[in-house]
Amino acid sequence: MVFGGASAARHGRTSGDVCMVLPFRAKTAMDAKEAGLGFHELCDAYGRMIGHDYSDLTIEDANRVRSFSNISLPEACATLFDQGLSRFSMSDNRNGLDLVMISMPAPGSELIYEQRGICITARGGDAILHSTAERLISHSTQVGEVLAVALPRRKLMALVGPDALGHIRKLTMDDPACRLFRCYAQSLLTLENDPDFRLADRIGDQLAELAALAIGASRPGHEQIREGTALQDARFHQAQQFIKRNLTEPGLNETHVARALCISPSAVRQLFGRRGSSIGRFIREARLARAYAMLSDPTAMPRRVVDVAADCGFESMSAFYSAFRTAYGCSPTEALRKN
């Protein structure tokens, strides 16, 4: 990670008005075994990426912590650890970056972080907000998957005010804004290619806006967020993910999505309508895409077409055949025979 430099120039900025500039790259995954790295080397590699030194590591973690994936955009950074570190001391940022980090343990895990003498515990579903400008100590005892997102302090401060970022604190995922932030941050790690600069800036802005809502936006911050698209985009992504996870449910509809997102059915319809679609069309196309993938996968176990249709939530075989042929120019049986 660097401050200013070539990345800033590409965006038409100077180091004086940039609050955070990270290496602009697509998703980076590192597996210790594949890379021929030891445990300490893996931690050092991650530390160099984010500008920190790790010390006080434990031998117990050496047998668990083997990989992480990271994506850095100019003003946002997300890292997913397959297994987080239980014990460590993380130095202040060595690259001169003043960042705020939101660390989120997966269900069944917990984080116990200490900073400036304040100790915070967050169990699966909650998060810990902390600074990267000061030393952080971990006392965690039950650590699994951890998602960590770093954002510029100055950018967040403009939305929440300085007092909200003054000390380490817990954020609860009972808050819909926190859940939206986590969902949107996870989607960042699914990017397969370099996003263009405009998209990268938009993602950074939207993560900051969602984080501000989770932390507690000031009145001016709320007004700025209302005028943007972060909430709508994050909710749309959350709706898509919920639908894809529940395609096997034959009666899946806007009511189920609305209940999961804690919004009204009409708000769900608006999410898809603003994008020139409908929730019914999205569900149908997602089911067809899943069915096609299952039928055309030569490595899959032999499946009957009727079973595939049921697994994808189709209640009528005639409707399934008709929609499949319209979408792919062949019948489900013909797609299966091509394997």
Rank of each mutant, 00 (worst) to 15 (best):
E114M: 10
G96W: 14
P176R: 14
L57I: 10
E60N: 11
N93I: 00
M157S: 05
A78Q: 06
E75D: 10
T58E: 14
G124T: 02
M173C: 07
Y113L: 02
L156T: 01
Y113C: 01
M157N: 04
D82S: 12
A62G: 09
A62E: 05
A78N: 04
R135I: 08
L136R: 12
V149W: 04
L99G: 07
R66P: 00
M173T: 03
V160K: 08
F81W: 15
S72N: 10
G108C: 06
N63I: 10
S86P: 03
Y113V: 00
E114S: 11
S91H: 10
S109V: 07
G38D: 05
T121A: 09
H130N: 08
D175I: 07
P107F: 03
K170V: 08
E75H: 10
L151I: 04
D163S: 02
H52W: 10
D53R: 15
E75T: 03
R64T: 09
G51P: 01
G108S: 12
A127G: 09
I128M: 02
E75F: 06
I71P: 02
K155A: 14
Q142A: 15
V160L: 08
R153S: 13
H130F: 11
E75K: 09
A45H: 04
A158V: 01
G117P: 06
L159I: 04
A127R: 05
H130P: 01
S138K: 08
K170W: 11
P105T: 05
D53L: 09
L171V: 02
I102M: 11
P152Y: 02
L80E: 15
P152K: 02
F88C: 05
C119R: 15
N93C: 11
M101Y: 13
R169S: 13
G125V: 06
V143K: 01
L180E: 08
E75I: 03
C178N: 05
